[in-house]
Write a protein that binds this DNA or RNA. Structure first.
Length: 571
DNA sequence: GCCGTTTTCGGCCCGACTGTTTTCAGTCG
């Protein structure tokens, strides 16, 4: 964990502990501060080094108090307030909080009465029937807690977008098939295409709410029904919690707006509503008691004098102000993509042939693709040797002759060695139409070492694109740190492009980093890194990521037509 | 604890659902 991540985690812990103590508002301030720090592209240590406590206080949601906490942590590795809170409530709140139905009040009650400190204590007490003796808890709650412990053990992690989105679409399709269900929309963080999803929100309109709730709560993949009401039900579907809400058509737009979120976006929008003398809720935009908008999101934003912001932008990272000024960017779309510049074939570690990959790309509507097999130390077995390279070139030439209105570029994904050199001699590099490079080992180096390594790699005159620049794998490893300012400067100087890798476990550059890259004037290449034909459609996830990074068509390398692309890349 | 186009005090979302009650507290989103 980086210092920034450590501080974010502590701020969340402080927020939780304050809440358990029954303190009002302060917990909200702490969690808000933590959230805002998470979405920064610069790390806290650097910000502090640059401008001390004053610079910290420029971060939204951070004032004197929290800036002081951060300074204390950077200087001493400790925060006194945090240590004191921990001492007064020695409870593993983080894990207890993952249990559905357990909130601050019950956690405090459990600790005070039964000295319950963690999941194991809780499970034991519940199994012994001790919980039901507490005020406000009887058998049913005890049962639910036991079930929830099981679920929380299995699904402590947020799920990848690449898992949640298809699941949400599957449920959406099932609901849409029912004649009495009219509209079905996916809301929540899935609609905003966040890289990880906690639970899925589905909104419907129906002529028969009862039937709709019955149908939803009895879908075949459902493992458990957590709640079932007249207008709202919650279930566990496969490994995810799914909420379904029934709405009136007149309030569908306001409900969609409300449930797409994010929370921070909604707070900002509601504030604008209030300033204009309105009140905005999930039931509509009201002037007094009169609903003046609610059917569509568009009419709500319009009445507020705002442009409709695409869900991917709704994080309160400047989109509210831009929407008021009618200066939102026209975000890049999947259909703008002209080609995919990163994919593998049977020449290295993938399933399909050059022709199969190229034909599939053409079928997706692209006008070009680049075949980029590995050139790596492991490549003695899998990668391209000089001999294989010549063979592959011939094969690509043949495919190019065969496919009309489509161009296959001969590329490679070359490993970056520990010293920053590329794992291929000039003799080989100059044979390719396009050269990608990436770090596949030696991830444990320091920020300084990795930055130096990256800069050295970008010095290579044949290099065009750095793939998955931080090497992170979501929920698996954080990726190495880089001095992005230096990396971006070097990229610009050397005419190197950075990738947003579309594999849903990577999404690297991330939304935050891609936005910083874009702001530095660097074009981003959104690629699938497909190792089989059926992975080529993961382009959608990369596009979502760069849309979250405010990218327009102009910011994306592979939205360029082939002739312009070839002009832009150095050869 | 943070914030300010009601600015140095007084807001900071609130309604649905559950399980416990006997009119409501706690949790969730």
């Amino acid at each position: 964990m980086t210092i920034t991540q450590e501080i974010v985690a502590i701020l969340y812990r402080i927020s939780e502990m304050l809440e358990i103590k029954g303190i009002q508002w302060e917990p909200i301030a702490y969690s808000k501060a933590a959230r805002n720090i998470e979405s920064l592209s610069e790390n806290l240590a650097d910000i502090y080094k640059r401008g001390g406590i004053k610079a910290l206080m420029e971060i939204p949601g951070i004032g004197k108090g929290i800036a002081g906490n951060i300074e204390e942590y950077i200087k001493t590795g400790k925060i006194k307030k945090y240590d004191e809170l921990k001492k007064s409530i020695p409870v593993d709140i983080e894990s207890l909080n993952t249990v559905e139905g357990l909130g601050p009040k019950k956690i405090m009650l459990l600790y005070k009465k039964l000295k319950i400190r963690n999941l194991a204590d809780l499970q034991k007490a519940a199994q012994q029937g001790k919980l039901r003796k507490l005020p406000g808890i009887r058998e049913k709650t005890e049962e639910n807690i036991l079930k929830a412990i099981e679920f929380s053990k299995k699904s402590s992690e947020r799920k990848l977008l690449g898992y949640a989105l298809p699941l949400a679409r599957e449920i959406q399709a099932l609901l849409r098939k029912q004649p009495y269900i009219h509209r079905v929309e996916i809301a929540g963080s899935t609609a905003r295409r966040k890289e990880t999803i906690g639970d899925i929100d589905i909104l419907i309109t129906t002529s028969s709410p009862q039937k709709a709730m019955d149908f939803f709560t009895s879908l075949p993949e459902i493992k458990r029904v957590i709640a079932k009401g007249a207008t709202k039900s919650t279930v566990v579907y496969e490994d995810m919690q799914v909420d379904c809400r029934v709405l009136h058509p007149e309030e569908f737009g306001s409900a969609l707006q409300y449930f797409i979120g994010s929370k921070d976006h909604n707070v900002a929008v509601r504030r604008i509503a209030i300033s204009k003398g309105y009140k905005l809720s999930e039931y509509g935009l009201f002037k007094g008691t009169k609903r003046i908008a609610g059917k569509t999101e568009d009419e709500i934003y319009q009445k507020l004098g705002m442009q409709w912001p695409p869900p991917e932008l709704r994080e309160n990272h400047g989109e509210v102000e831009a929407a008021l000024k009618h200066s939102l960017p026209k975000l890049v779309e999947l259909k703008d993509i002209q080609g995919d510049l990163h994919m593998h074939t049977t020449y290295s570690d993938a399933k399909n042939t050059v022709e199969e990959m190229a034909s599939a790309c053409k079928a997706l509507g692209y006008s070009y693709c680049a075949i980029t097999d590995h050139v790596s130390p492991m490549g003695i077995a899998y990668g391209l040797t000089m001999e294989k390279l010549k063979k592959q070139r011939k094969e690509i030439d043949a495919v190019n002759k065969k496919l009309s209105d489509f161009t296959v570029l001969h590329g490679a994904e070359v490993d970056i060695k520990l010293n920053g050199e590329l794992f291929a001699k000039e003799k080989m590099l100059k044979e390719f139409d396009i050269v990608l490079a990436s770090i596949h080992q030696g991830m444990q180096r320091t920020k300084e070492e990795q930055t130096k390594r990256m800069l050295k790699a970008m010095d290579n005159k044949y290099l065009n694109i750095i793939c998955h620049p931080t090497g992170r794998k979501i929920n698996k490893r954080p990726g190495y740190e880089l001095d992005f300012e230096k990396v971006f400067n070097a990229a610009k100087e050397n005419n190197v492009f950075l990738e947003t890798n579309s594999q849903h476990i990577r999404l690297d550059l991330s939304d935050v980093n891609a936005r910083a890259a874009k702001d530095s004037g660097i074009l981003i290449s959104v690629n699938t890194d497909a190792h089989a034909v059926d992975q080529l459609d993961s382009m959608e996830y990369g596009i979502s990521t760069v849309r979250r990074a405010w990218c327009t068509k102009k910011d994306i390398l592979n939205a360029l037509p082939l002739n312009e692309l070839l002009r832009r890349i150095k050869r």
